[in-house]
Every structure is written in structure tokens, then in C-alpha cells.
Computed example of a mutant assay.
Amino acid sequence: MSHIVSPDLVKDRIERLPLLSATASALLQLLQREQYSQAEVVRLVETDAALTTCILKVVNAPSFGLGQQVHSVARAVSFLGDKLVTAIALGNCAHQVYNHALGGYEGSAGQLWEHSLATAIAAREFARLMTPPVPLGLAFTAGIVHDIGKSVLSEFLEGRSQSLLETLDAQEIEDFALAEAQALGTDHARLGALLARRWQLPEPLVQAIAYHHTPSRAAPPWQGLCCAVHLGDALAMCLGLDTGCDALQYGLDDLTCATPDLSPAVMDVLVFTVHHEFQKTRTMFFG
């Protein structure tokens, strides 16, 4: 049974979430550029004491395996890389989005963060194959933020997820996002785009969030980016890194047919690379 969510109620829930920190916003703006320097990343991090502390904690953790203490932001950024620093900045200031349980999706606390991280790594690898090229930093960041709408929609899905899955099993509807829209009048991609605009994210990231399940509907300049995230999202779910009951309940958009070679040999390399990079990066965060 449908229960259309009031736009005012959605707006209220989105406005309750904290804004991104100035540093996280600036890093997101920086990574969407095709050219930037590591020195610019360092300068931004150095202005944020909390982020500096978090980054030094990660790079000095035994699991990182450096075997030496790092005390400067510049060295920490050189070891971690600009993309991972941006991911840390987002996770640090948007913990209410990434680290809360997704009850409506039957997902546990931290599951959204792990899925987002895996999607980011996979989207970066797919971006290497896109024509025209998609900036790797932009693809990674888009993967990190693609599912932020689930943190808002989860509340409204409480107690409804199984009925949505039943409509999918009965082939009454094509995928979970369409089931969300039918039941609630909106879906996590649309709500994510609204949250992204509240956070004042760059337009390419808004597009990637809004159309990560339907890249063919994105504005033409950003279809390649959306396609990289779309495929990265699917690969993350195939690796068992999902957000709960909606795992593998989405179809592949027709635009994926226009991507470069995705032969079994290429996919084998992609799967190995993404899994290896995810495990290495996850260890940095969680030990």
C-alpha cells in the first residue's frame, strides 16, 4: 500500500541534517577540477583542526603499516592521497548520514559508509574506461556521496521494505528505486539530490546522485560520470558490500551498453582491483 511522503516532511528531515564543514565542501569543489595540486589539499586540511587530527590518527594507525610516525599534514596527505583525505573529511562531518543504521533498508550502522567507499573505488576504476574521459577524483567523490538519500528515505521505509521486495518478486515493478517511488512518491536518488543541493555540492555530484540508477537521464556532459557510478554501485553490491535488503534489486541502465570493453577478462581485473583496494582502505579506517 502506498503512503505518499509529504514534501514538507521531507524538507524538514533534510534540514535537520548538519551542513558539510567548510573544509569538506572546499575539498569536493577542488576534486571536481581536472587539475589541482596536492599543496592545495594540504592547505585546506591544515585549516581544520578536527580533520587534521583525524587524518593523522588514520595514517599513524598500526593497520596503516608505515612503521614510522607522521606528524605533518603534508606527509599524511602524501601517504593517504587526496581522494581518501576527502572521504575522511566527508565521513568525519557527515556521520549522521554515513554511520547510522538504515532501518528502512534493514542495514546496520556503518553499512552505508562501506558501500559508499566500495562504490567510490569501483567508480574510479570504471572512469578510467570512459570515453570521453571522466576525472578520477570526481568519480571517486561521486561514489562516496551517491547514496546519501538513503539516510533520509530510510525512516519512511520502516516496516515497508519486505512489501516492496514482494512487488519485485512478483515482477509487478522493475527495481527497488521504482518501488520506493510507487510506495512513497519519491526515491532515494531524488532525496539525495535535494540533500546535495542543501550541502551546495557541485552540479556534477548532484547529477551523479540524482541519476546513479538512470545515467541515460542525466545531462549529457555528466552521463559518463553517472555511468561510472552506476556500474560502481552494481559492482559494490556484487561484492556483498551493499546497504541492506535492496542489494542487487536494481537493473542496469541502457547507457551501460555504450561503455568501453567490459569483457570477462577486464571485469576480472576490475573485481580484483576493487576488492583489494577496498580491503586495504577499510583497514585504514577500522583496523
Results as ranks from 00 to 15, higher is better:
residue 91 G to I: 08
residue 181 A to F: 09
residue 184 L to P: 00
residue 27 L to F: 07
residue 207 Q to C: 07
residue 56 L to W: 06
residue 148 I to D: 00
residue 30 L to A: 15
residue 83 K to R: 08
residue 15 E to N: 15
residue 186 T to H: 03
residue 161 S to M: 03
residue 115 H to W: 13
residue 104 G to Y: 03
residue 83 K to E: 03
residue 176 F to K: 09
residue 198 R to L: 09
residue 151 S to R: 04
residue 45 V to W: 12
residue 269 V to R: 13
residue 35 Q to F: 15
residue 229 V to K: 03
residue 213 H to E: 01
residue 180 E to R: 06
residue 52 T to E: 14
residue 19 L to W: 00
residue 181 A to M: 06
residue 50 A to R: 15
residue 136 L to K: 05
residue 63 S to W: 04
residue 121 I to M: 08
residue 118 A to W: 04
residue 133 P to S: 12
residue 70 V to T: 07
residue 119 T to Y: 06
residue 146 H to S: 07
residue 37 S to V: 14
residue 132 P to K: 09
residue 92 N to T: 08
residue 84 L to C: 02
residue 52 T to S: 15
residue 53 T to M: 14
residue 58 V to P: 00
residue 20 L to W: 04
residue 151 S to H: 07
residue 184 L to K: 01
residue 210 A to Y: 12
residue 126 F to S: 02
residue 189 A to E: 12
residue 16 R to I: 05
residue 64 F to C: 14
residue 95 H to G: 09
residue 167 T to M: 11
residue 125 E to A: 13
residue 205 L to F: 12
residue 248 L to E: 10
residue 242 D to Y: 02
residue 126 F to I: 02
residue 231 L to Q: 05
residue 9 L to R: 15
residue 129 L to S: 04
residue 55 I to S: 09
residue 105 Y to I: 06
residue 80 L to D: 01
residue 170 A to E: 12
residue 211 Y to M: 06
residue 270 L to Q: 08
residue 43 R to G: 14
residue 94 A to S: 15
residue 10 V to T: 14
residue 242 D to C: 08
residue 162 Q to L: 06
residue 132 P to Q: 11
residue 17 L to I: 13
residue 211 Y to C: 10
residue 43 R to E: 14
residue 179 A to N: 06
residue 95 H to C: 10
residue 93 C to H: 13
residue 248 L to V: 01
residue 4 I to Q: 15
residue 63 S to D: 09
residue 193 A to E: 12
residue 109 A to I: 01
residue 152 V to L: 10
residue 79 F to Q: 12
residue 163 S to N: 13
residue 113 W to N: 11
residue 36 Y to T: 11
residue 166 E to G: 05
residue 28 L to E: 07
residue 233 D to C: 06
residue 89 A to H: 09
residue 23 T to V: 02
residue 199 W to M: 09
residue 27 L to E: 04
residue 123 A to Y: 01
